[in-house]
Design a protein around this nucleic acid. Structure first.
Lengths: 341, 341
DNA sequence: TTGTATGCGTTATCAG
DNA sequence: CTGATAACGCATACAA
């Protein structure tokens, strides 16, 4: 029982000092591992802190040091499957250290975004990560923010900003190279909305790799459409009708790939023995539930998030980069592209 | 050009006061809408603040008031599809107001969780939301935290805590009632791992509603298995073999439902004219890409998140609740359960 | 080696 | 109506 109904505030450094029988300054030095403190005293202070379950007030520390140890993560569509892995990677890269992440979802509304930026700045975040909802460039937050900003997934439209994106052209190329290595030569490409750079960039990689290998694009042209299964089904049917010789299909997304596989099954075409299918995104829940399981190009979004955290930390420390930095994709091989023989 | 190489610090209230030609105290009152300020003075201060793009230092405010205006959101599996909508709902419910959300992912590791809790407490969050990764009860953070805690999705195992969950029993009931209303009478139930209360609770609702309607459970027993498409396919095949009279299947998840529909198509059974299928979770990407589109029981996770934010705010204001609070599910009707005639 | 004093940016109290 | 001044909790320069 404590002496006189003392209010159960959360303990301060002063409380620790009192218990340890030292001054606040000494307590501070002891807990922060400064050398100018007798070992025995340090022990006493540490025990006192332990006993009170003292935890330093980060607000006070931040006020004093000018560093809050927090960053803002501004996303445009949490429900979208792209933000999440990036967010996880970033949170992870920061998490274990001493910086915490404020999460803000602007719902694609720029007013709300401004609102969030203001709130974040008011909380004196040390930096900002802006995660876009598509691969298309997005409006810059502007050059005159008081803290560094890193853009991930959707690059900023301002070249002076630092943007981190995965290499979609390279991803398309990887897909084709993987299929060729699996013995395929009559390769078609079914993808999403042409207005998305994710579609056009991947297509660029696909056609480029085919050219480099001296192979034609089966079907004669890239089949642009929508990012969903229905388009995958429809496009696959068209393709089979017009180019029955096709032996592999690069799909612009895993959803499209699911639709494609569905349609091929309907036509009694076996995957992969007759036609190989490779998706894009490596979205686990789709790829592993597919029958057969779906080989897919992985844009490594989590790694993108990690890199964003890293670059932001560097910028906070003073080392600023500019322009667009790209990270390579990789192919995750599953059953849908097994060699046909 | 500023007078003499003045350092471009972020402006403080003092700077605003100086520009406006008033004292700091007056500036504070003017900006905070206190009445004891001449209208003309207030205008002058506001313009000065505007001109300097002044934003009050939330750290200082928090230090003074003892309220940081932040909460911690502790999740166990960000990649899981359940945390995200809850997180969105919570972020949304707080977001527009004056409280910001710290996001922490413990990756299901209780050590990491403790670590995060400590960090959050150090940042003087005003409260905590703990989002579980399954519907099964999880370990309480304990009764002696200095801030209120609300558990969402996974209830705490400590009855004194407040837990918010969706009504899975009711959801199972709703599914059956929906099918009966659509003219189905020979209803089976294929669901996930029996060790998940999500499975057993929903099954309870299904069997309860059937009994109440005087109908048998087609297939004779609840078919427990795994939460994936493969099990849906396998179970559906078994079911058709053993109980070909079945005219509707309640699935424990949308993934299972996708597998079920897939298997039915393989057997040339039409959905919904011959067999209706209803899923659970209302996971958009699965439900709307299914063919036919999938009717599903929506656990309203986003609303769960909103409620969590609301309850936490109330608790922060001093009104604490205990025990388990349940929110009702709802059926989202799509093509897969259209009446057969 | 330890303690005292100062200030970080704000708000609230009180005196002018 | 306005302006000094004292906190809030902590880290440091400096004095002892």
């Amino acid at each position: 029982m404590t002496a006189e109904g003392s209010p159960p505030r959360t303990p301060t450094l002063g409380d620790v000092a009192k218990v340890a029988g030292v001054s606040i300054a000494t307590a501070s030095k002891a807990l922060n591992g400064r050398t100018e403190v007798k070992a025995e005293t340090r022990e006493r202070v540490k025990r006192a802190a332990e006993r009170l379950s003292f935890s330093p007030n980060a607000l006070a520390q931040g006020l004093l040091t000018g560093r809050s140890g927090t960053v803002g993560l501004l996303t445009s569509d949490l429900e979208g499957r792209f933000s999440i892995p990036i967010l996880m990677g970033a949170e992870d890269a920061f998490g274990s250290g001493k910086t915490s992440v404020f999460l803000c979802d602007a719902r694609g509304d720029s007013i709300r975004e401004q609102h969030h930026v203001r709130a974040l700045l008011s909380r004196r975040v040390d930096g900002l990560i802006v995660v876009g909802s598509s691969t298309n460039p997005r409006a810059s937050l502007g050059p005159d923010l008081p803290v560094p900003v890193v853009y991930a997934y959707a690059p900023s439209d301002h070249p002076q900003d630092l943007s981190l994106i995965s290499d979609n052209v390279g991803g398309g190329r990887l897909a084709v190279e993987h299929l060729i290595a699996s013995g395929r030569t009559r390769i078609a490409h079914i993808t999403g909305d042409i207005d998305y750079s994710a579609a056009s960039d991947r297509a660029l990689g696909v056609t480029g790799a085919l050219e480099a290998a001296g192979l034609p694009l089966t079907g004669g042209r890239v089949m642009y459409g929508s990012w969903n299964e229905a388009w995958g089904r429809g496009a696959a049917r068209q393709l089979i009708e017009r180019s029955p010789e096709v032996d592999a299909i690069v799909c612009g997304s895993d959803q499209i790939a699911r639709g494609v596989i569905d349609a091929l099954h309907e036509q009694n075409l076996d995957v992969p023995s007759q036609i190989a299918v490779i998706g894009f995104d490596n979205w686990g829940i789709l790829a592993t539930n597919s029958r057969p399981q779906l080989t897919s190009v992985d844009p490594r979004l989590e790694q993108l998030g990690r890199l964003a955290a890293k670059r932001l930390s560097e910028a906070i420390e003073g080392t600023t980069k500019h322009g667009i930095e790209t990270i390579p994709c990789r192919v995750v091989t599953r059953a849908s592209t097994a060699p046909s023989n």
